[in-house]
Design a protein around this nucleic acid. Structure first.
Lengths: 182, 182
DNA sequence: TTTGGCATGTAATCCGTTACATGATTAG
DNA sequence: CTAATCATGTAACGGATTACATGCCAAA
């Protein structure tokens, strides 16, 4: 049975905002959606080609003006497919949290090993939170068209809430672990 | 280059607590770690066999007393490998959050579609939170050996904090989206 | 001139899921 | 008796990553 295939929806979704090249998509995913998504060239180009074969996107060679670029644009069928997917229920994300795995089976290690992992986690989440806050600042300056702006701001706000919860947890966890270590 | 291969660590980690069968591992992942991990038989049995071939676990047929079961136990080399992995830095989890993807490209859909997604998300997180709280209750009754008990309780506490953050976000998001919809 | 960014692609690999296949035992 | 649970496995498939391969253009 057809499993996941989420790359195609990210790609189709971005094309919903206007024509883009494979390279554009890569950059845009990193910059605008990097806090909850990732795509590699190794999927982008083949997926783009498949979408074209299925008639969901069209290619246009952007000749001249510098290097050659292949711009992909949604066809009406592509837009319909996107809308259909958007209306489908969200599938629960596959969860595989490596830090929790290490904690779960951490009894086999020395206590300070787990303490260091949680410390690193807290720092990582603090950096992440900072990054999100910076993104939010940029968003305020460059107001985009609605409702897109609202949607994208909401994704960042969720990231921040979750990051703050994780940071708070890490503090609590470190206190508990240090108490035990003594 | 060898990618991920996280199943082996979950399996090796559980075996660190004592011998288990493939079936035991499946059940235990579901019941004790289901809020942050998942394993299918399709990986468990082949991985177990590979670990045996690598000399990290040993098999013992548990003959008689009901059905036959193949019990796997860590070898000294297996335990050493587990400890080495536990000491390695935690790799950041691959993040691919489908709800956020839909929101990110949701401009192509009608506003109420996104509202329904967020509502469903909130309900799902509320159920999830309830489940975690129940687990925590069970844990208090059945105190396990330390430090394992502390570690496992911490995994649940992180889940709860994050779930609460998501629920709070959903409320805020719904307010914003409904405001816009009018 | 050489480094770095722009730009497109292919090949190998592989982890993990789903589906299939089989059978024993136990509870209702 | 029969349905559910216990129990172990294999086969097919597929999505995605990593690494490789190639080349243009602009700036330092």
């Amino acid at each position: 049975m057809a499993r996941k295939a989420k790359s195609r929806w990210m790609i189709l979704g971005l094309l919903g905002d206007g024509p883009r090249s494979g390279y554009d998509i890569k950059v845009e995913v990193e910059e605008a959606a990097g806090h909850f998504w990732k795509e590699s060239f190794g999927s982008i180009y083949p997926v783009l080609d498949r979408l074209r074969a299925e008639g969901l996107v069209q290619v246009r060679e952007e000749a001249a003006e510098g290097r050659k670029r292949r711009l992909y644009a949604l066809t009406p069928r592509g837009r319909a497919a996107l809308r259909r997917w958007l209306a489908e229920p969200v599938e629960p994300d596959v969860l595989r949290l490596e830090l929790l795995l290490k904690l779960h089976v951490g009894g086999a290690a020395a206590p300070d090993v787990m303490i260091r992992h949680v410390e690193a986690y807290r720092e990582q989440q603090q950096r992440y939170l900072k990054g999100l806050t910076a993104i939010l600042g940029d968003m305020k300056k460059a107001e985009g068209p609605e409702p897109r702006g609202t949607y994208r701001r909401l994704t960042v706000l969720l990231g921040r809430r979750v990051a703050r919860a994780r940071i708070a947890w890490a503090g609590e966890a470190l206190a508990a672990l240090r108490r035990r270590a003594r």
